[in-house]
Design a protein around this nucleic acid. Structure first.
Lengths: 154, 154
DNA sequence: GCTTCATGGAACATATCGAGTTACATGAAA
DNA sequence: TTTCATGTAACTCGATATGTTCCATGAAGC
C-alpha cells in the first residue's frame, strides 16, 4: 500500500512555523521538509481556506499562523486536509446482492468503523500546543539550539 | 488512497467454498467473484501455505477447505495474507533527526497504534463460522435458494 | 516604472502498487 | 493422449501520492 503522509508533513510544517517570528516562505519550508515549494503551497492552500494560516505575496511575504495552537487538535488538521481515508483496507462491492458479501462486509465494516472512530478520537485529544510543548521538551533535553535552515541538514 | 480489498475478497471466497461439497475450481470462484482465475490462485496460494486450504490438479481438482471454520478468525486470515498495512496514513521519515518530526511522529504513532490494535482485536473476535452463520441467517430471511454460479449474476 | 520576490495554479512527469491479463509449464484423471 | 486444473512468470492497466516545470498575479523595494 502506498501510504499518505500529508498529515505528518503538515504538522511538521505548522510546528516549524510556530518557531518563527515573521512569515515563512514556501522555499524555506520546502528546504526544511526536503521537498518542493509547490508541494508546500498545495498543502498550505487548504489550511488557508480553513483560516488556520494566511499568505502574503512579495517581499517579506510568506506563510503565517493565524490560529491559537491550544485550540487546534490533530483532528482539526486532519479535517482541514480533506479527511482522507484512514484505513488501507476496504470492502469489495462487486456483488452487493450476494448474501455472502453482505455478511462479510457487515463484519468488516463494524471492525473498521470502531478503529476509525478510535483513531479520530485520539487525534482530537492532542492539540498542536501539546506537540509544540513536546518539541520544546526534546529540545531542552538535547540542549542544542534550534535553526530552521540547518536542523534538517544531516 | 488506493485501498486493499484482499481481506474482503478472500473471506468472500472462503465462505463460498464452505457452501460447496467437493473441490471448487479457480474458474468457478473467479466467476463468482467477478475476477480472474489467476487472481484467485494468487490469493489462495498463500492460504494453502498456511494450511487453511488444499489444492488438487486435474479432473475433479480445485480448492478445498481444510480447516475448522470455528477455529479460524478474521485475524488469522489477515495474518495469512501477509498482514498488509491497515492504516492509510504513515509518518514522514525524511528528517528523523529533526526534533519537530520526532514530536509529531510520537503523537501520531500512539494514535495509529491504538487504532491498529483495536482493529486487530476486533478481527480476532470474529470466526469464519460466525460469518457463515450470519450468511445463513440472511439466506433464510430472504428465503431464496443459493447457487454459486448464479447468485452473483445480477 | 522596473526589478525582485513571493504566492497561485495549471499541466505534466514519476513511482508505487493493487488488480487484471496472457502465456506456458506441470501434473492428475479420463 | 487428451482434457482439465493448478503454478508461476511476465506484462498491462489504473489510481494516486509526490515531484517538477512553467507562467500568471501581485506586493515591496529601488
Amino acid at each position: 500500500m502506498k501510504r499518505d503522509s500529508r498529515l505528518s508533513g503538515i504538522l511538521h510544517v505548522l510546528l516549524h512555523m510556530a518557531e518563527q517570528d515573521g512569515p515563512v516562505t514556501s522555499e524555506m519550508l520546502a528546504t526544511a521538509m526536503q521537498t518542493n515549494p509547490v508541494v508546500i503551497r498545495r498543502i498550505m492552500g487548504g489550511l488557508r481556506d480553513q483560516g488556520y494560516v494566511s499568505s502574503e505575496k512579495g517581499h517579506g511575504g510568506g506563510w503565517t499562523l493565524t490560529c491559537d495552537l491550544n485550540a487546534i487538535t490533530l483532528r482539526d488538521i486532519y479535517d482541514a486536509i480533506g479527511a482522507p481515508t484512514l484505513l488501507a483496507m476496504s470492502n469489495r462491492t462487486e456483488a452487493p446482492g450476494c448474501l455472502v458479501e453482505q455478511a462479510v462486509n457487515a463484519a468488516l465494516v463494524q471492525a473498521f468503523n470502531d478503529a476509525e472512530a478510535l483513531l479520530l478520537t485520539r487525534l482530537g485529544e492532542v492539540t498542536l500546543a501539546q506537540l509544540s510543548a513536546d518539541f520544546h521538551t526534546r529540545l531542552s533535553q538535547r540542549g542544542g539550539k534550534f535553526d530552521l535552515e540547518t536542523v534538517h541538514a544531516s
